[in-house]
Simulated scan of single mutants.
Amino acid sequence: MNNTSILHIKEQKTGLNKRQKEFNLLLQNIEELNRLIPELESAYEEMLQRIPTDLNPLIREYQGFRAEIVHLMDRTYTNDLFRNAYQTKLAYLITESAFDLIVNYGFEDLKPVYNKYSDIDIETAIQLQQEQFKITDPAFLLESENKTEVPEEDEFHQLPEEEQQKIKAEQRADRIAAQIRAAKLHAEQQKTSKTVRAVYMDLVKSFHPDLETDDTEKVRRTDIMQQITQAYQENNLLKLLKLQIELERTDQDKLENLTKNQLNYYNKMLKQQVEELEAEKEAVQKKIAAVCGLPYQHANSRTTVIVKFNTNVNELKTEIKNIKIVLKNWKVPSQLKAYLKTYQIPNEKFPDDDDEL
């Protein structure tokens, strides 16, 4: 951080005591966190900007090839090579892939294919999946004076699927809007940390111009309060501590002379600031992890984060090359059959003898 050199206790011939060493270490931690957090935020924003251009097109391309494979298996299902367990395996692969592509990637054209091989139609399958995660408390439907009245839970599930989806979409939008409003309010309320406010209030008590009767001193304190207020608005603890040390110790200009009690006080404030910054860093790291899959504890530099994102992009490109090869090979029924012979449906067993298949 700029202009914090005054807050570093220089080495002495007799060495530094425990509190002085702790003071220096805490300052180093704060300066490092103040450097790292914006760096990680920048990496996160860069990833968000690159997702629509660098990642999403590859995802769409890859899922498109998956959809082609589903159609290929559908066309090949009645081939004379495929009987009994082979067809059972094909039906399983078709329905599993089609369901994922329909629900998560919007391949609506696969609905007839899914229905062709599944015991239940796609709409019922989607509803069953939703019910697995259904919140039984009707309170999950937010109340609003300006919204359509939400039916009770039993009534809700008796509505047509289209109407249910419409209501849920409205509720999701309202929840998101409420979260945004709450986040903005919280950000305003937490613009300054508790530690910064504590130091700020100490300085205000000591240097507020309204507490001074002498006009000359009042002018000086007015200037001081402007500096204090600016540091407070910037949420800059180190700047406030620097001002506090300079202003309250005008007869001494070296940190080496801080008393035991003063060092204890400063170290307490600095520890609190470190804890707050560590929490802020972890929050950014977890946002990064959600985007690129990097374990959040490993997101400790912009370079590491961007390298991981680039690796994800390159791995997806490789997956696209591989799936194109698979698609090409499976257009030959005998090669698809060779794959099916070794494939096993999870938790199910099939005879190994080819004649039985």
Rank of each mutant, 00 (worst) to 15 (best):
L142Y: 04
V332P: 00
K184A: 14
L241Y: 01
E131N: 05
A231T: 06
E153K: 09
E212S: 11
I69F: 05
L340A: 09
A198P: 00
Q171R: 11
T216Q: 15
R221P: 01
Y86W: 04
I120G: 04
D253W: 03
E256P: 00
E96D: 06
E163R: 13
A85P: 10
T229Y: 09
T342N: 15
E275H: 09
T195R: 10
D253H: 09
I51N: 05
N257W: 11
Q272L: 07
V70M: 03
A289N: 05
K13G: 12
Q179T: 03
V70G: 07
I30G: 02
H71I: 02
S144A: 15
A231G: 07
E162V: 08
A67N: 10
K194V: 07
N24S: 06
N261T: 11
Q244Y: 12
A85S: 14
E61Q: 15
T88C: 08
Y232R: 15
D354Q: 14
E280N: 11
F309A: 12
A43Y: 07
K89T: 04
R249D: 07
R172M: 11
Q190H: 15
F99G: 08
A43V: 04
K194D: 13
A67R: 11
T342R: 14
N329G: 01
R172W: 05
A169V: 00
A279T: 07
L93R: 09
A299E: 10
V199F: 09
S97V: 00
L33Q: 14
D215G: 06
K116W: 06
A169T: 09
N24Y: 05
K287P: 02
V150D: 15
Q227V: 00
T124S: 14
V307F: 12
V113E: 11
N267E: 02
L16N: 12
N34E: 15
L58N: 10
K13M: 11
E11H: 06
T192F: 08
A283P: 00
F140M: 12
R175I: 02
H8W: 08
Q252L: 01
K286R: 14
I94H: 13
A338Q: 12
N2E: 13
A198T: 07
E45T: 11
L26V: 01
Q244I: 00
T4A: 06
Y339T: 01
E61L: 08
E149L: 12
S301G: 09
T342V: 13
H186F: 14
E356S: 14
D119Q: 13
S206I: 00
E162H: 08
E155G: 10
E319T: 02
I51L: 03
M1G: 15
T311M: 04
E68S: 15
Q87D: 04
R50H: 03
T311G: 04
I126Y: 07
Y296P: 11
M201K: 15
Q165H: 10
T195H: 09
W330C: 09
E248I: 00
Q158F: 03
K328F: 09
R220G: 01
N34M: 10
Q297F: 12
I122L: 10
R60V: 05
I6C: 04
P346G: 07
K331A: 02
